[in-house]
Nucleic acid binder design. Structure first.
Lengths: 122, 122
DNA sequence: AAAATCCGTAACCTATGGGTTACGCTTCCA
DNA sequence: TGGAAGCGTAACCCATAGGTTACGGATTTT
């Protein structure tokens, strides 16, 4: 967990992770979006690799990178543990509201996966 | 956000935050639970103070420390953003179930669920 | 086959982090 | 009122992080 936390403590690495959401990019494509040197990016990528936040795959002379968000789970759970005691009830209310709103929004934008359950009362 | 992330990247500081859940402790009480020197703990506490994860208050010749979990919000939201795309619908289902279950459990265990429901921004 | 491309590694420098011991300032107490 | 208690700070040491330039090893292209 130490490694993951210190990995995302760097703004460059956070930006890399953000730009990998949904896509896969080559090392060169990533490096090209920063002003710092390419070797610096290469080492950032190594840090992300070694803590599991990123997976790489050789494709010819290029190397494709993709996000692996599962590496964040442990840290997310620790943060949840710390945040839990504070203002529990209020946050649960807000959370349920948000969950309902987000799912409703998604099921109208896409095709509804399973039955409609938007009218249940708590 | 950099500061918060790098603060919780250290296991000693994570332990300090954990032991501050729910209580307030003096610097001495905290230091006494570790094997490393007291000045080292003092500096860890300073790091936590300066990034807002901890609040301190002088009480005579002692200094009381308490957790301030709000400092984790920004980082938690960033992590949520990264984790969001994966398995979105399924997690929303599970989340709503858990929210409902947890709140029901809490309102039966305690006296009343907040007689007044204040304005919800949703 | 030779050259260009893609990308990691090595060597180097400086800044920062975390530990230690020594010290100093308040505050309590006998 | 003098000494002990509680804590932060300073000075110091060593390891690590992050940047740079120079280099090397595959793969593609011409």
């Amino acid at each position: 967990m130490d490694e993951v936390a210190s990995a995302i403590a760097d703004p460059v690495r956070r930006d890399i992770l953000l730009m990998l959401r949904g896509t896969t990019l080559t090392a060169g494509e990533i490096a090209h979006r920063f002003t710092i040197s390419r070797p610096a990016i290469s080492r950032h990528l190594r840090v992300l690799r070694e803590c599991g936040l990123v997976r790489d795959e050789l494709a010819g002379r290029r190397r494709m990178y993709r996000l692996d968000a599962a590496a964040l789970t442990e840290l997310a759970e620790w943060i949840a543990l710390i945040r839990a005691p504070a203002d529990w009830d209020h946050r649960l209310d807000a959370l349920e509201t948000e969950v309902r709103r987000t799912r409703r929004e998604r099921s109208t934008r896409r095709t509804a996966p399973h039955g409609e359950r938007t009218e249940e009362t708590a």
